[in-house]
């Protein structure tokens, strides 16, 4: 009805509504662009989510038909499986330590780069380089560097009379070692912060300087508020990434353990040492693809989904806040 009243606008801005035939043609055009993606959303997102919920109520081992077991998988998950608790705590540990550590490192390096008068491009490339190293390669390199017997790190520490820890071979140090790895590869986050820092309007600094603000006051009253949307965004996406933290923990465990008996399978060493690096997704993987408790693995998946979805909602709110709606 209102369509008649509308001003003819550009084709892109308004769907043409005057005649049904045209409307359908427009719909078909959109569909021709979107069809593969919509199929992908259905097959690789909506379907497996529903299927995961269904399987989480079954006992299923690949070899026999799924059997409905009601809430048993959830009962086991919440009241009996102490490894699941341990794995969840490991993941929470990474969320609480790894995310802030990376943000702090990114902030410091990007501010350092901004303050440099010359050579900024050179240092930016150097600082960014570790983020490029493939995670598996970087993790293996770190396990070698931190090898307590032959690695360079403890060797260098010993020059200063420090008896280095066991790093990836110690349940107390394995997670901090992974944090060092994540902090080393901070380049991607650094580049994002750098761009945001350069977006801070210069007149604000000038005004602050005229007011006699010192470096800390300039940071706290000018830089930080301008940066905070990016910081919040980085924190939320960091949490989501850390909820899926898998590769580095898996590779560090299998390389550091080094004792995999032949035929044990890749996943037999996950968590080494003493499940200290067994993150929640790793526990899910081991349950499903090492022990073939597929039903239980799906119960773990459903819980992970609920948590990740909660964080994503926060993200979406944020997203609207600083782009003025999703569009």
């Amino acid at each position: 009805m209102t369509a008649l009243l509308e001003r003819p606008a550009s084709v892109a801005d308004k769907p043409p509504r005057r005649r049904p035939a045209r409307r359908w043609r427009h719909r078909l055009t959109v569909l021709s662009f979107m069809a593969p993606a919509l199929l992908g959303i259905g097959v690789f997102f909506l379907y497996p989510l529903l299927a995961a919920v269904y399987f989480s109520f079954t006992r299923f081992d690949l070899l026999t038909v799924p059997r409905w077991v009601g809430l048993r998988n959830y009962t086991y998950l919440f009241t009996q499986d102490s490894v699941a608790g341990q794995a969840a705590l490991n993941t929470v540990w990474f969320v609480l330590i790894l995310v802030p550590a990376r943000m702090l490192a990114a902030l410091l390096t990007s501010m350092l780069l901004v303050s440099l008068k010359r050579g900024g491009g050179f240092f930016r490339t150097i600082f960014y380089l570790p983020a490029l190293a493939p995670p598996v390669a970087a993790t293996i390199a770190f396990v070698f560097l931190f090898n307590p017997a032959t690695g360079p790190v403890n060797e260098v520490l010993s020059w200063f009379g420090v008896d280095g820890p066991l790093w990836f071979d110690s349940p107390d140090w394995s997670k901090p070692s992974l944090v060092l790895l994540g902090t080393w590869a901070v380049g991607d986050l650094m580049v994002i912060f750098l761009a945001a820092l350069l977006d801070v309007p210069k007149p604000l600094y000038e005004a602050a300087a005229i007011d006699g603000a010192n470096a800390w006051q300039r940071f706290w009253h000018v830089t930080f508020p301008s940066l905070s949307p990016v910081l919040v965004f980085a924190a939320v996406t960091g949490v989501i990434q850390t909820l899926q933290y898998f590769t580095q923990a898996a590779v560090a465990a299998s390389v550091a353990s080094g004792t995999a008996t032949t035929g044990g399978g890749i996943s037999s060493t996950f968590g080494y040492p003493e499940n200290s690096t067994l993150t929640y997704p790793l526990h899910l993987y081991v349950s499903g693809f090492r022990y073939y408790d597929m039903g239980y693995a799906n119960a773990l998946a459903v819980v992970l989904f609920v948590v990740a979805f909660g964080v994503t909602v926060v993200l979406l709110r944020r997203f609207r806040a600083f782009t003025g709606g999703a569009r």
Binding site: L46, Y47, A51
Partner: peptide, 14 residues
């Protein structure tokens, strides 16, 4: 539409 299609598809797939 897309949600619908997805749900129907998921049901069929189940």
């Amino acid at each position: 539409r897309p949600c619908f299609a997805g749900t129907a598809l998921a049901a069929a797939a189940t």
